[in-house]
């Protein structure tokens, strides 16, 4: 069920409930923090470009965490960067969401054993909503991840705790 519960046929009035309206607004304009880390960032940029067109889902890159709703962790999270990511995440206003993109930020990827400098999964410092597997994931996979996140937001409730 979408935002429309009932529609009056001869006027511009629709009736819906609060949650549906808020969730629809949130999931349709997920402004993204412009933040790229490694090779995954190249795929993320390809997703933003005209061929895959992230913008059609309302994903627009913003240059400050104050204006962003989601952060896509696109690449290898080093220990040095992990502290910065945590700070950026804390600066994003609620409600905020996180997509972990690619093997590195999911679990350390190829650096899992000998990467003295790599955090083995970004979920050790910030809570992740959607994990996108791949090394790096194709733009289609990132779009799928975004659709999954939209699905998650669609089922949120302002009264009941979901996560």
């Amino acid at each position: 069920m979408g935002i429309l519960d009932k529609e009056f046929s001869d006027s511009n009035i629709i009736i819906t409930n609060f949650d549906n309206l808020m969730n629809w607004a949130r999931l349709s304009s997920l402004w993204q923090l412009g933040f790229g880390l490694a090779c995954c960032a190249i795929e993320m940029m390809a997703t933003s470009a005209s061929h895959y067109d992230f913008d059609r889902f309302g994903v627009i890159p913003r240059n400050t965490p104050r204006q962003a709703d989601i952060i896509i962790i696109s690449g290898t999270v080093t220990l040095k960067m992990a502290l910065r990511i945590k700070r950026l995440y804390e600066q994003i206003a609620d409600p905020k969401y996180i997509i972990s993109m690619g093997s590195c930020s999911n679990c350390g990827g190829p650096y899992w054993e000998h990467g003295y400098h790599v955090l083995k999964g970004v979920d050790r410092v910030i809570p992740v909503d959607v994990y996108v597997p791949g090394c790096p994931p194709r733009p289609e996979a990132l779009l799928e991840g975004l659709l999954k996140l939209q699905e998650k937001i669609r089922n949120e409730s302002s009264v009941k705790k979901t996560a």
């Binding site: 679990c107 350390g108 083995k120």
Partner: peptide
């Protein structure tokens, strides 16, 4: 110094666990 052959990973850096 991490590229020395006898280097051992520490458990934590700034509260973050390093080993897998």
């Amino acid at each position: 110094f991490p590229l020395r052959k006898d280097y051992k990973n520490p458990e934590f850096y700034q509260g973050m666990k390093i080993p897998y």
